[in-house]
Amino acid sequence: MANSTPLHIVTGKGGTGKTTVAAALALALAGRGRKVLLCEVEGRQGIAQVFDVPPLPYEERRIATSDAGGHVYALAIDPEAALLEYLQMYYRLGRAGRALDKFGIIDFATTIAPGVRDVLLTGKVYEAARRRDERTSAFVYDAVVVDAPPTGRITRFLGVNDDVAGLAKVGPIRSQSESIMAMMRGPQTAVHLVTVLEEMPVQETLDGIAELTGAGLPVGYVLVNMVRPSLLSQDTVDALQDGRLTAKTVAPVLRDVGLPSAAAPTLVAGGLGHIERQRLQDEQRAIIEDCGRPSVSLPLLTSGVDLGALQELAEPLAPLEDAR
């Protein structure tokens, strides 16, 4: 029997729509009667913004029902609250916990002592992914999705417990850190990388895959976001490229429908620009297809993000159900 419920870690370069994709993935995994937990760890309240709900407290609460009838719960993990909860849960440090607070240790641990934040954040994910129903002893959640730090920081974030295990040679912190690392590297975990089809994000994705692999962390899918469909047929592309479709051909057509013919050069230039952008997009797509990991394409949402749009993104994400 598995030690934890399936854990999906979603990372990506800033600006690639990581939070939106993580939210869509949570919906995709929430099949009929299923419960999925969506966590954020950076204190940005990104989930609340995507689902258009008030800021989330440090509490698991239901924020959406998927088309299939499953439920998405959300949790904004706050390191301070996680530390006090952790001390209470594992050490029953009620009074001592408050004393720690009084001595500034909670503050020290969560803001100043670097790294401890990440330990607490990953520790809370670990706890949620292993939590079982007391009665049925089944996992409370059918899947946990984490809107994780960006690609540049992800390996350090997930591997932070390795560092801690290195510092603590014995004792409960060491064994806890080792268990967390075992789960992060385990068969139930997959780290997905969100990218857009531009040079820098694609390069960063390849670097991220190499880094994660090098650290022994399991890479899942590359999620290609904001893919722009071609609006031009091959016929029009050919006509533009071999000079059969020019401002001179376009101008009279515009005049016939009552549009200013002076706009013709702009339209032709716009068409050529579109071809160029599609070519660059195809170039980057070829690199992704070559990277050795499966990928999924998600369309650009032109009308903003709402629950309907998230459901639209969720559809192509269905194969991640058995990503590992």
Partner: peptide, 17 residues
């Protein structure tokens, strides 16, 4: 006609931008 169809597509691109 061909020129009209192609112009229609260019208008789509323009509208998106």
């Amino acid at each position: 006609r061909a020129a009209e169809r192609r112009t229609a597509e260019l208008l789509d691109v323009h509208a998106e931008r």
